[in-house]
Amino acid sequence: MTAMVFQVAIGGLLMGLIYALVAAGLSLIFGLMDIVNFAHGELMMLAMFAAFVIWQYAGLDPLMMLPIVAILLFGLGVLIYRGLIARALSVNFNRGMVQIFVTFGLAIFIRGAAQFVFGGEFKSINTGWLAGRTAEIAGVYLPLPQVAASFVCLAAFAGLLLISRTEFGRALEATREDRDAVALIGIDRDHIFALGWGLGAATVGVAGVMLAGFYYVAPNVGANFALIAYVTVALGGFGSLLGALVAGVLIGEVEAITAAVLEPSLKQVGVFGIYMIVLMVRPRGLFGKL
């Protein structure tokens, strides 16, 4: 019985850390410039396909390709900002909706492109250092790819924390507080925004690579994770790194418990229920700034 309880709790934690990292990238961009990236799940999906392709043609293990994919996604994030978001910021009418639907359009486009290139079938990475291996501790089974993913997620959070302590991190924070005033001290906000998008995309890229180590890869895989990421971010509070971490783990746990107690197909109902309840009590999420 205790082993089963631990099994559920560990399962929730392992998944929750992935959710947390996916949400962290979203939250970072939102906090910086008040834009919800509705193509966030598609960025994750692209990272998963990148991992799949690299694995297939170069035989690299997901752990080894992390830096490559992170850099690719970073570039993609910068590109998206420069090409689309900067333009969306400069419209002077209906800006809120334009931002939402530009990223929506982008999401649909990316999904279509992935389908065009890779087809709709599920793929998976099934060889590697850890693929398919589990460890057993006192009757609790630990799938190693997921354990590795969790450590990578924690490391990524530590990395984000370190970045926020650097001078660049301060500039990010300053830009988020007063995007017009930074120009007065010679900071180019477009540059900061672009790097912010790069960083957000790289973050979800890292999550995507690790996820690809044990999850199916397909053009529509992002949608579900994105929905959970929005909930995580809203639950933790938009723009809060700690909020994303706590809410991600919370959601992983609630999901695992609902699946165990009720029914696996209802696991997300539990998640969304908790989210609604928390928002009723704290409309700005657990750690949201007013």
Partner: peptide, 12 residues
Amino acid sequence: FPRLSVEDNLRL
């Protein structure tokens, strides 16, 4: 930058 420290404001 109201939430940043005096030192951070200066260094920025």
